[in-house]
């Protein structure tokens, strides 16, 4: 009896190997203040000692979009499905930046934070989660920018108001993007700890993937025989649906969306398992 009591009472058990699919929700809840502080730190520290301050969150996507308008829209003359070029590219850039930023930043989790992780314990998953949330906030800010241009175009009559009723599915799009970014980030961050080769591959890979996703061109311009390849990319359905919801152009394919959803959950679960295996001993290999 007394023995049982003792065994039950241990608060912390340190073993060689933990459970693989444990997200440690309870532990993360204990550290929620840390999560919030990390998000705050990442948001605030970015524009410290800058004159323009938080304005930089707007300037960056605008400049990227303008570049795309100039190069892909005007010089290369790619189709935009008949939409105003600025809105078309801005929609693509906003979505893509969220995904790619979450992915690249999470993939650095272990290597970038080795000095903190090497000195103190907190649930390691806090770091990638905080990165996703930080990026979600930035995504929100950029969405505001998108709406500002949207309103401008509608009010000047250059574009017809065309938000579809499928907007109800918008939160789902965000969740899928989150899971994709986190999942890929988990996998890559774990691999980077041991094999630094990944670091070089990721930067290049993400850039390449952008061209394999309808960010700067609409899916409709792609010949049918290549469409299959694009469809295998889980981000394709997201971008197409996003444009359909807000701009009324593009395709909203539920089958495709379901594929993206399942893919995102699968990569997230696999990523989590790998992450949990790595976090215990990564300090020895990083």
């Amino acid at each position: 009896m007394q023995k049982n009591q003792q065994i039950d009472h241990w608060d912390t058990i340190i073993e060689p190997r933990g459970s693989l699919f444990d997200l440690k929700i309870r532990e993360i809840a204990q550290y929620k203040d840390l999560l919030i502080l990390f998000v705050r730190r990442d948001l605030v520290a970015q524009y410290k000692q800058t004159v323009l301050g938080p304005l930089w969150y707007f300037i960056q996507p605008i400049l990227t979009t303008l570049t795309y308008v100039l190069i892909f829209g005007n010089v290369a003359g790619l189709s935009t499905d008949g939409l105003p070029k600025l809105l078309f590219y801005l929609a693509g850039v906003t979505c893509w930046r969220y995904f790619s930023n979450s992915l690249t930043k999470t993939s650095n989790t272990f290597t970038q934070n080795a000095s903190i992780f090497g000195k103190v314990y907190f649930p390691r998953a806090i770091m990638p989660i905080s990165i996703t949330i930080t990026n979600l906030v930035m995504f929100g800010i950029q969405l505001l920018l998108f709406f500002a241009f949207y309103t401008y175009y509608v009010s000047t009559g250059k574009f017809e108001f065309s938000i579809q009723s499928e907007i109800l599915l918008f939160p789902l799009l965000i969740i899928i993007m989150m899971l994709l970014g986190l999942g890929f980030g988990f996998v890559l961050s774990s691999m980077t700890t041991k094999y630094r080769d990944m670091k070089h591959l990721i930067t290049f890979g993400v850039q390449l993937l952008m061209y394999g996703t309808p960010v700067i061109y609409p899916l409709s311009t792609i010949p049918d025989q290549y469409k299959v390849i694009l469809m295998a990319n889980p981000m394709t359905a997201i971008l197409e649906s996003f444009r359909f919801i807000f701009l009324g152009a593009g395709t909203m394919d539920y089958f495709q969306l379901a594929y993206s959803g399942i893919f995102s959950v699968a990569i997230f679960v696999v990523g989590l398992a790998i992450f949990n295996r790595t976090e215990k001993n990564f300090m020895d290999t990083v």
């Binding site: 058990i13 340190i14 073993e15 060689p16 000195k119 103190v120 001993n281 300090m283």
Partner: peptide, 24 residues
Amino acid sequence: KILSRVTGPTTGLISAKGRMGTLL
């Protein structure tokens, strides 16, 4: 490091009672 859960043990077990704080 093992006590503060920065890295895991190869074999063996540690059980502790109460909240652990580390100052490495």
